[in-house]
Design a binder for these strands. Structure first.
Lengths: 338, 338
DNA sequence: AAGCTTTGCGCAAAGCTTTGCGGAGAAAAA
DNA sequence: TTTTTCTCCGCAAAGCTTTGCGCAAAGCTT
């Protein structure tokens, strides 16, 4: 058990004045004489007084805590976003409490309820893969609790969101493949319910169309974003009568898994199959060949999400939809066809 | 601004009874009649009442929040540990608030003060690289606030800690190299102030001695655990008149950087230089050649740290030192010399 | 010197919960 | 019928902070 820290009461008793006087002295209220103010502040320093956030929270109905829900913690992607959120939060005197939904709809609901019990001032989150209905946010919205989505979003007319230019990026990748002499371009997509999957598929098809290539449903394989499903998807693609000469993975994890499988089958990258990922994590430069990927501004996405939260917390401004720009970082894995 | 949530007062007014009666009814106090108890509980359900943690915290002097300080967030290692801490915390009704010291001693002190202001019930942390003095923990210990260190530790007689068998693991690596025909074994070490660096160096030297190899100071190069410094260290090693035929990196980041540099210089792994890392992150199986590494039970380390915290929070038990076992996972990068 | 304005500080309430104690009414005992 | 004993509930305090209001003493005006 830790002892109770020093409170206004402690100071008041030590100085033989009232609690309210101490409170005012600390905030330099003109009602308190300069000499007393001085004495109070000095003692507060010595005893390292700091206001009790629980009492303040009770009074102001504000905990200065932001709840953050991510589908997974152990990924470069989400860790970096959390880092961005934290940096802004700290700058503005907020704390963040992290919860992980483990890509489960049920857990996502639990986390939400759990954080609301804590009386967080708002929620910044990324939808789980399983989330297909959005009614569990009704209570939040009704209560006026700020909510911000990043990357995987929904209800964008009511809720502020931060996303990247998924469609444009996917289109760019597809056209890049064509420029490198590829004609059979495959896409390992994400879960169909997610906006990121949909938008990247849209960009993929837009790119094909722009280059005069027909869309072949066989070349579009869904995954659950995991390495395992990506490996399976790659096997399926490579087993096709006319296998692809280029693969666009919905994220880097997918691309890494595809890379492993392609190499395992004795094919060369990029000579036989070109490969591009999405996110551009650190390891993209470590693997061989180095992975071409879309640079996803993860840290910036976190910061932006936090800023959108602050915006909502200040006053009821209309929800904004932020779209962050990505950049295609061309490396070895998408070189010329041999 | 979000509205005030339903409180005991809300329920009391709705049912026209006193607040204390509602409080007792909800906790099934025998003083309250069964019929009234029933009505109170039902209304509480309907209105989704949940006790205000701030009020409870004020009363019980317990926030049910654990502060967690890590030197870095965007790493597989710390993300996984945090994940472990979170899982135990949730199971026991605690929340965790994350702060990042960015490997800075100054920021570490800030984080600590900041979390104490929040009135966390305890701190679970990993020392920053720069931390060489430990006086900033005095106040914590004096106040009786539980403190737990993981991985990088200090003051182990007063504070519970969780570490891995660093020395044994490093010794095992060194002897594994010898078994693979290596004689000039180098070690890219961590910052000398950290116990993990010291223990791994000790294990490295123990292994050399056990195999009858002389210690060569030139083959021991420190790093700050970053990829950049590891690259520099590798260059330094490879430029030696008698370059090493094996390199043991203090962590996987270091090893990945070394791998990149070795390959850049046109040397083959493991034919010319064998390589082993420490942590065994996911990407160890993605790079080429696949990296031999020490499997570090990160998630388990997080869980153990959280359990040690709980132990301290329950009652003042003597601090325990936990040592988790690692395992050498042999892959391609440490194969036979050609 | 009497009345008025300042100056400087304390009281109390609100925010939410738990809990010891007291008290009113009814049922049981004498 | 009177006293005792339950039964069932409310009051109030504590935990900490802020803030409107009141009050006393000192200073000022005329």
């Amino acid at each position: 058990m830790s002892k109770r820290p020093v409170s206004l009461k402690t100071l008041a008793q030590a100085l033989n004045v009232s609690i309210s006087t101490v409170s005012r002295a600390l905030r330099n209220h003109p009602d308190i004489g300069p000499e007393l103010t001085q004495r109070v502040q000095q003692l507060a320093q010595e005893l390292r007084y700091s206001p009790n956030p629980l009492a303040m929270g009770l009074l102001k109905n504000a905990t200065r805590i932001i709840g953050v829900i991510v589908p997974a913690l152990v990924t470069h992607f989400f860790a970096s976003i959390i880092s961005g959120i934290e940096s802004v939060a700290i700058e503005h005197g907020y704390y963040i409490v992290i919860r992980c939904s483990y890509e489960s709809f049920e857990k996502e609901q639990e986390c939400l309820a759990n954080l609301l019990q804590l009386r967080v001032e708002g929620i910044i989150m990324c939808l789980s893969q399983e989330t297909k209905t959005y009614a569990h946010f009704d209570a939040l919205l009704a209560a006026g609790t700020p909510l911000v989505f990043f990357d995987r979003v929904c209800r964008s007319t009511e809720v502020p969101t931060v996303v990247v230019d998924n469609q444009a990026a996917a289109c760019r990748i597809t056209r890049h493949f064509v420029a490198q002499g590829r004609r059979r371009i495959a896409h390992i997509a994400g879960p169909p319910a997610l906006n990121i999957s949909q938008e990247r598929v849209a960009g993929y098809r837009e790119g094909l169309a722009a280059e005069g290539l027909a869309f072949d449903a066989q070349l579009l394989v869904p995954s659950d974003l995991s390495a395992e499903s990506a490996t399976a998807a790659t096997q399926q693609l490579l087993a096709l009568p006319q296998p692809p000469d280029a693969i666009f993975g919905v994220n880097d994890t997918t691309a890494f898994a595809a890379m492993k499988e392609i190499k395992r089958q004795g094919l060369r990258i990029p000579a036989d199959v070109a490969l591009v990922g999405f996110t551009d994590e650190y390891h993209a430069t470590v693997v061989e060949p180095m992975l071409t990927s879309v640079m996803h501004p993860t840290f910036e996405m976190g910061r932006t999400a936090a800023l959108l939260f602050l915006e909502q917390a200040q006053g009821q401004v209309p929800p904004r939809q932020m779209v962050l720009a990505t950049q295609l970082v061309v490396r070895e894995s998408s070189g010329q066809k041999s």
